[in-house]
Computed example of a mutant assay.
Amino acid sequence: MPDNLIIHWKQASDLHLDCLFIHETFFNTDGMQKLLNRTSFPWLKISKDAQLCGTVQNNTLYFPLLNAKELYRWLEQHIMQNLPASQSAPSAPMPPEAAESQIAPKHSNPFNERFFRQMLTDATPSKLHLYDDHGSIAVIDVAQNSVWPSPHRLHPMTDLSFKYDLASTTDLAKADRKESAILQDWLWNLFWNSPDFYQIAPEDGHYRIHFWPKPADKAQHKRIFQLSACFIQGAKLSKISEQHDIPIRTIQQFIAANIAVNNISKINLWDAHYNPPEQAESNADKGLIQNFIGKLRKKFGF
Score class of each variant (00 low, 15 high):
Y164I: 08
K34R: 13
C19S: 05
F111S: 00
P90H: 04
D14F: 00
L269V: 12
H23D: 13
E203S: 09
T158R: 11
W188V: 04
K178S: 12
T25Y: 13
A12W: 02
F21K: 00
Q118R: 14
T124Y: 05
L172H: 02
I259T: 11
A173Q: 08
D49T: 10
L172Q: 09
S194H: 05
P64A: 10
E24S: 11
A284H: 12
S108Y: 00
K218T: 12
F115L: 08
Q118G: 03
N258S: 15
E70N: 05
F302L: 11
E76W: 02
T121W: 11
I267G: 09
I6C: 06
I137D: 01
D217Y: 04
S161E: 03
N37H: 09
P96G: 05
D18W: 12
K106T: 09
T170C: 10
I79K: 02
F211Y: 08
C53A: 15
I289H: 13
L128Q: 03
K48H: 13
I293Y: 11
D245P: 03
V147D: 04
H221T: 14
M119P: 06
K239M: 11
M94Y: 03
D3A: 12
Q243I: 08
A175F: 01
E203C: 06
T170E: 07
Y131S: 10
L20Y: 04
L44K: 03
P202I: 07
F254T: 15
E113F: 07
S168A: 08
L35V: 15
H155Y: 14
Y164L: 05
